[in-house]
Amino acid sequence: MTPWPLLILLAGSAAAYADDGEYLFHAAGCLACHTAKDGAPLAGGRPFETPYGTFYAPNISPDRKTGIGTWSRREFIDALKHGTAPDGSAYYPVFPYPSYRLMTNTDAGKIFDYLQTRTARSQTNREHDTPWWLFRWMMKLWQWWALDEPAPAQTNQELERGRYLVDALGHCGECHTPRNWLGASIRTRYLAGTDLGPEDEKVPNITPERADGIGKWDADDLAYFLETGQLPDGDYTGSLMADVVDNTTSKLRVADRQAMVSYLRAVEAFPGP
């Protein structure tokens, strides 16, 4: 016997979020990282300065020589979700696969299909500039050691959608959750901000804590911020977050921004950073 009401339910929820590849690509914020300042879209080359050296984003345009034009969908999903390269080696977590691993295979596959329709750009990848003691094989250990439990799934459908947008696609925690000395997210300080974010930027606390977080913002303020970058006092965000607003949150559907807002207002409040 087929539990058909369940099937209908599943079909229904899949249809509700049947996003196309372009939408998912924006919601996951791939563009800004894989495009250098004034460079060709997706051709890579943008530098990331970290305590572990300078990393350069690779070319993910469908160029067959210098990009990912010859990759299979399987290889792509392994890279995006498991941090595993086609040759079996492990990626450094500047590539936020610790977040993308929470994406569904269907969504990852759609991003792959979308990328394959983009203009191929011939641009050879730049070698990372890492300290002498850092090797790729160490990332295998890192993956085994540092990839801990993600934030729990939500039973409420809107909150669950919000969690998916925040964690699996928007990878907000990659900047807003502090890391330990090995660069792993500290789950017990989820979204609580850090003084040592990317590019040594201070990244604010976005939990609903009233004094240090965004607990004083109302739902409308937060939705408007995600849409336009305006802070409740009339100031406009800048630096890295302006990229996130431009490339990701402003491009979401109203209902998706709303789900993100509901989820962010429901997560545990932490003081700090």
């Binding site: 100031d235 406009y236 630096s239 990229d243």
Partner: peptide, 20 residues
Amino acid sequence: YRDVGESCKTCHKQFRQKKN
């Protein structure tokens, strides 16, 4: 009004540092 906001955000993105 949105265009005004865009002009603020565009400049802050390029020319203003994060909060200390």
